[in-house]
Write a protein that binds this DNA or RNA. Structure first.
Length: 485
DNA sequence: TTTTGAGTTGTTCGA
DNA sequence: GTCGAACAACTCAAA
């Protein structure tokens, strides 16, 4: 048999629509490899929640590959060393992978690629995680976009993603079977089983991803525009963790959404899929920005924000993390996050606005907490989201836009079902006070078994005052800029 | 080069 | 209760 090809799995934990796997299979034997080297991702190695997801996703991939005939090889250690050793053991002459786009991983990949070539190995890389490579979409001047709408128009004016060749039905294993660690030995599962809620809420792996997409296309895409802001309903796709780990690819999603749109309206291009596809384009935009501005996970995109007068308060930060701010909609989100590893996007914005504007704490603190607790933690998306909310990123909201936690709750969770689920200690309050319990008369609180400051906190800041304080702080860096001129 | 139009997701105030 | 305007100033992207 000709020498096998190492297929290096990273964030493409799927069989379908996987160009690297297809390329490997077309050349003969395949050695599928997953290697665990978190230190190579610098400050942004996967957080606790993401590791838990990864564990289950790897088990799923392991099963799928075993069924196809070539079991997954799991190793630990530096990428280059592992790849070189595995090539030697199996007689592989080439290595293929699908590209990732985080700054640290890209640098690592480049170095590995060059080193492997020097060893006489063939290296080929593929595009699998995005609709477009981050550098493919550019303004008329060839520059990166910094405003979403023109970026989105450009995507719509580009050729639609195309279908890819079918996945291999069988894989030839190498003649020498390399040794492998067990997924369980990587120690990805959290030591404390806080992940019970995670298990109930999710099915990691390619099969789970496909089912989630089908559910969304069948039940929710039609009403996406109406329901996507309703955390009390299942109005969103909930595909984010599946997308992050590449259990499903965005091109496949795009094509399936278009198909569904055509089937329902009888004509392609009716546009029913567009509100959802637009969100998929935000994911693209985030990767576009991270590629062109690789320092933004740590630093504000807009320079003026380097001197923003952020507060420091360990106490307030902890209250926010634990969901004990006294604002039920914010607290519900923060508790949903801890319990399930996920938070509805509307609530993410409100919770992020509360941290950065009501509490005036640095957005980096919020980004780090989300990084550790979200199963879908994704450097590009997380960075864009936090910088956008804080007002220091691309296409930021005007600074006077400050979310009102009570009003947002009333609008997006009108019956309070979401709050009651995650903040049960105030569940017995009537709808009209569920988002602002401190406004309830004493006898209503007593009847509901709520003692403010005892069973549920009073608001840790007064929103009205906090809003004024935030506006003043934002105003101060505007003035500072004027003086500089 | 200059000009022009526009910008994910909000809130508040006053008519 | 509903509605429209104001909230500032900036920078981007394209003509």
């Amino acid at each position: 048999m000709s020498s096998p090809t190492i297929v290096w799995f990273r964030r493409d934990l799927r069989i379908e629509e996987n160009p690297a796997l297809r390329a490997g299979a077309s050349r003969g034997g395949v050695v599928p490899l997953f290697l665990w080297a978190p230190e190579e991702e610098g400050k942004w190695a996967p957080g606790a929640a993401a590791r838990g997801w990864l564990h289950h996703s790897l088990l799923s991939l392991e099963n799928a590959l075993a069924r196809l005939g070539s079991p997954l090889v799991v190793r630990r250690g530096g990428s280059l060393g592992v790849l070189k050793a595995l090539a030697k053991e199996t007689g592989a002459r080439s290595v293929v992978w699908n590209r990732v786009y985080e700054p640290a991983a890209r640098e690592r990949d480049l170095a590995v690629e060059q080193a492997l070539r020097r060893e006489g190995l063939l290296v080929e890389t593929f595009a699998a995680s995005l609709l477009f490579e981050p550098w493919e979409i550019a303004t008329g001047e060839g520059k990166p976009y910094q405003v979403f709408t023109p970026y989105w128009r450009k995507i719509l004016a580009s050729p639609e993603p195309d279908l890819c060749d079918p996945a291999p039905k069988r894989l030839a294993a190498p003649s020498r079977r390399p040794k492998s660690e067990r997924v369980a030995d990587l120690g990805l599962l959290p030591s404390v089983d806080w992940a019970g809620g995670l298990r109930d809420a999710w099915t990691p792996g390619e099969e789970g991803a496909r089912r989630a997409l089908e559910r969304f296309l069948r039940n929710a895409m039609r009403e996406y525009e109406r329901d996507r802001d309703r955390p009390d309903r299942i109005g969103t796709s909930r595909l984010s963790p599946h997308l992050h780990f590449g259990e499903i690819g965005p091109r496949g999603i795009w094509i399936e959404a278009r198909k569904r749109e055509a089937a329902e309206r009888g004509a392609r291009g009716s546009g029913a899929a567009l509100p959802y596809l637009r969100q998929l384009a935000w994911r693209e935009f985030a990767h576009h920005l991270l590629h062109h501005f690789p320092r933004t996970p740590e630093e504000p995109l807009r320079n003026a924000f380097a001197r923003f007068p952020w507060r420091r308060s360990r106490k307030d930060l902890l209250a926010w993390r634990r969901g004990l701010t006294g604002y039920p909609f914010v607290d519900a989100g923060m508790r949903e996050l801890r319990a399930t590893g996920w938070m509805h996007n509307r609530v993410r914005m409100v919770a992020a606005s509360f941290l950065t504007k009501d509490l005036l704490l640095p957005w980096q603190e919020g980004a780090r907490w989300f990084w550790d607790t979200l199963v879908d933690a994704d450097l590009a998306n997380n960075t864009l989201g936090w910088q956008w909310t804080a007002g220091c990123g691309a296409d930021a909201a005007p600074y006077f836009r400050v979310f009102h936690p009570g009003a947002q709750g009333a609008r997006c969770d009108p019956e309070g079902a979401y709050v009651r689920r995650w903040v049960p200690e105030i569940a017995a309050l009537p709808d009209c006070f569920i988002h602002e319990p401190w406004k309830a008369p004493e006898e209503v609180l007593r009847a509901a078994g709520v003692r403010l400051g005892k069973t549920y906190p009073r608001p840790i800041v007064d929103h009205r005052e906090a809003r004024e304080r935030a506006l003043a702080a934002y105003g101060s860096i505007q003035k500072a800029r004027e003086r500089k001129r």
